[in-house]
Amino acid sequence: MENKLLETENLTIHFGGVRAVENVSFSVGEKEIVALIGPNGAGKTTVFNLLTGVYQPLSGAIRFKGERVENRKPNTITRMGIARTFQNLRLFQNMTVAENVMVGYTCRMRGGMLVAILRTGPFKKLEAAAEEKAHEWLSFVGLSARANELARNLAYGEQRRLEIARAMATGPNLLLLDEPTAGMNPAESESIMELIRGIRDLGAAVLLIEHDMRVVMGISGRIIVLDYGEKIAEGRPEEIQKNERVIEAYLGKKAAKG
């Protein structure tokens, strides 16, 4: 963990009186798979929203590749190399599967508005490159056959895969996955786990929010536990499984003691 890709320091945000995230510090190293877990309402998705610029922190710092991330716009942060998926799917429903991925690739394309309007030589090359990239990512997640369907016609599990492909097309160094296996059966979860390992092998780090403990314990190198907006534990899977505060947060005080 010498090379810290992402580092947060005393990250804090309040909504009215609710301390959604309070003094949370953690880091993610290069090519690391880290899980962010915690009971419902612990502030996990809020952390994602802070990391991607949807919310601005009340206080604290976020550094990505050594650069500050706070007060930057979401599209700038994506360009810096943080991509994400969503807990409740947010695909561009009325675009085709391939187009969804190409939208992700848009921010990696050079050539400004003028080039696009004038349709100059490099422009056509860029469009062709975008299409090729889109197909690469679609085959990576196993959706090549459905490239020309509208996104809304995909099955639920396929839509989740498409979100991952779209996020990967933005060329991230860090991928944030918000409950990637929610609503999936064990076989489907297994294949998503394979996919996540594949992403790591391609060189990106992954930070995932997940409720399915089989998935969490199966793929993460490190686990961070949030409860009521605060970090209550951090460690390797086997350490977290035995951690009393974690058991208490999930099952209540009595269970932890008994």
Binding site: N75, T78, R84, V103, G104, R108, T170
Partner: peptide
């Protein structure tokens, strides 16, 4: 919102 998060 999502478009922004995809770098647009």
């Amino acid at each position: 919102e999502t478009a922004k998060l995809m770098g647009i």
